[in-house]
């Protein structure tokens, strides 16, 4: 049985069509990556799946009692709200301290428990949000552009981390990628969205699909770069910008 499925979902803001007849299903344990240009409806689709937005047509069905871990795109906490990481992890429900220790170790945020959430860096915040999502022992993790703001090695490390999580927890992962051209190779399926589902399949199938090329052809000569497992050889192809470190 699918963990979650959307059947013929359509959504419009006023006269602007955001989603048009979108159907998809996520099966237990699989990693699905959603790619699409800016404004293609990716975030809206996530919000429809998590129940934040009710679609105008079609329906979303969840497995009963689905344990859903949700990692939002960003979380801006007002400075006026005092909140330690530990208190945040216990919202809205108190969690078992042992479970919190495990999630903190799993996401590498040990030692941050007493820090104020508003003072965290982008990368730390991302890991705290992931830790919070893990506390529900999720069957499905939904992540909205989780690697935004990370550099390339950071992104690669995050993808490896997700893959390990999937293997150890057995949870399915549904992830929106902000980068059209870089998709984690461990994805079982890639769904390419431009208001409607224009193509889907394994990363290689999507890479070769004419619809994908038509949409994203300009960026890397149409290539869908995949993170392979030879990460040791990965350091050559990203640019370092040393300008920022110059002292006047």
């Amino acid at each position: 049985m699918s963990l979650i499925r959307a059947d013929h979902v359509s959504l419009a803001y006023g006269r602007q069509t955001v989603l048009s007849d979108v159907s998809l299903a996520i099966e237990p344990g699989e990693i699905v990556t959603l790619v699409g240009p800016n404004g293609s409806g990716k975030s809206s689709l996530v919000k429809v799946l998590t129940g934040q937005i009710r679609p105008d047509a079609g329906q979303v069905r969840r497995k009963p009692e689905l344990r859903l871990g949700y990692v939002p795109q960003k979380l801006a906490i007002d400075q006026s709200l005092p909140m330690t990481v530990l208190r945040f992890l216990n919202l809205p429900r108190r969690r078992d301290p042992e479970a919190i220790r495990r999630a903190a170790a799993e996401t590498g945020i040990e030692g941050l428990e007493q820090r104020q959430v508003a003072d965290l860096s982008g990368g730390q915040m991302q890991r705290v949000l992931l830790a919070r999502a893990l506390l529900v022992s999720p069957e499905l993790l939904i992540l909205d552009e989780p690697t935004q703001g990370l550099d390339q090695p950071g992104e690669a490390a995050f993808y490896r981390h997700l893959e390990r999580l999937r293997d150890s927890l057995g949870c399915a992962v549904f992830m929106v990628s902000h980068d059209l051209h870089v998709v984690m190779s461990a994805s079982d399926r890639v769904i390419c969205l431009n208001h409607h589902v224009c193509c889907e399949g394994t990363p290689k199938v999507v890479r070769d699909a004419p619809e994908y090329r038509a949409l994203f052809g300009q960026g890397t000569q149409g290539a869908l770069a995949l993170y392979q497992h030879d990460h040791d050889h990965h350091h050559h192809d990203h640019e370092h910008d040393h300008q920022g470190h110059d002292h006047a």
Binding site: Q52, Y70, P72, L75, M83, L91
Partner: peptide
């Protein structure tokens, strides 16, 4: 408190 922090997180919970 959860809804104040983030309506997205609140709805997902």
């Amino acid at each position: 408190l959860t809804a104040t922090l983030s309506e997205d997180l609140a709805v997902a919970s």
